[in-house]
Amino acid sequence: MTDVSLQTFDEHEPQFGDYFALLKPRVMTLVVFTAFVGLLAAPVALHPFVAFCAILFIAIGGGASGALNMWWDADIDAVMRRTAKRPVPSGRVKGDEALAIGLALSAFSVVFLGLATNWFAAGLLAFTIFFYAVVYTMWLKRTTPQNIVIGGAAGAFPPMIGWAAATGGVSVESILMFALIFMWTPPHFWALALFMRSDYDDAGVPMLTVTHGRPATRRHILVYTVLLAALALAMGLTSAGGPIYLATALVLNAMFLKGAVEIWRRDEVMAEADNYGVEKRFFKLSLLYLFAHFGAILADRALETLGFGFGGLL
């Protein structure tokens, strides 16, 4: 008699990269960079290794909230073209695994940021994870067209956490950095919603394009861009800014306003004629906008360190 055994393999065999993709590495670059600027712009110097660890733990915390977001949103991610290939909706990683990784990394990042720097910064990181995973993902995203406006706060916290890691508190400068990202988020995402066309409609996510229509979204982009430009330029006159920041803000806000006016003047017929070229350019410019503003803050702090301080007019 012969025993024959047939071993079947579970198709569920994720690579390490699939787990890493749960942490939304592209979003993480923004978190890392803005937290880095917040930490270096602060008037208190940290030991370089502690600073490196602080940025790493903030990045891991941001990644953990991304994993929790992917766990909760797997159903709507599967419907949208932009997100259908994410690890959970594509079946490469199970929802339970994403949840476990999200929770474990959240706890790890908060505890270790507290141990490495201070518990105020750790508390701020915990609140950010809670805000993104619970307030934005579980509550706002599916219930209100203001999801991006209020939820944008989650993405705006990293420079405040970086600042708090160095100083142990909050200041006008760190609140202004928060405000800059907070005001930047709506036009950035509404431009994306315009050229992703049916994605949000199909998923039933109440984006402004779905609930109020595209002309209203175009008006909102213009209004928010005007408010953002006013804030960004005013910030150049405070101690958070400096000559490099002011010059950068003048150029980029003029470009951003021009893009917002172009978007406002267009209708869907014009947009479809050039395959949403203006909206796509505006979206790309928005990425450069944020990186350039924070890069300029960093450059001004470097100037101050070299003895060419500006100090701010206000």
Binding site: F9, E13, P14, Y19, F49, C53
Partner: peptide, 30 residues
């Protein structure tokens, strides 16, 4: 192909744990 995916996962977890040890040790020393 499953073996390659499994190897990638094991290697990644191993390197992550090694990095974690290095970070905790470094932080402690600092």
């Amino acid at each position: 192909e499953m073996h390659e995916r499994r190897f990638s996962r094991n290697l990644g977890v191993g390197l992550t744990l090694t990095a974690l040890i290095a970070i905790i040790f470094g932080l402690t020393m600092v």
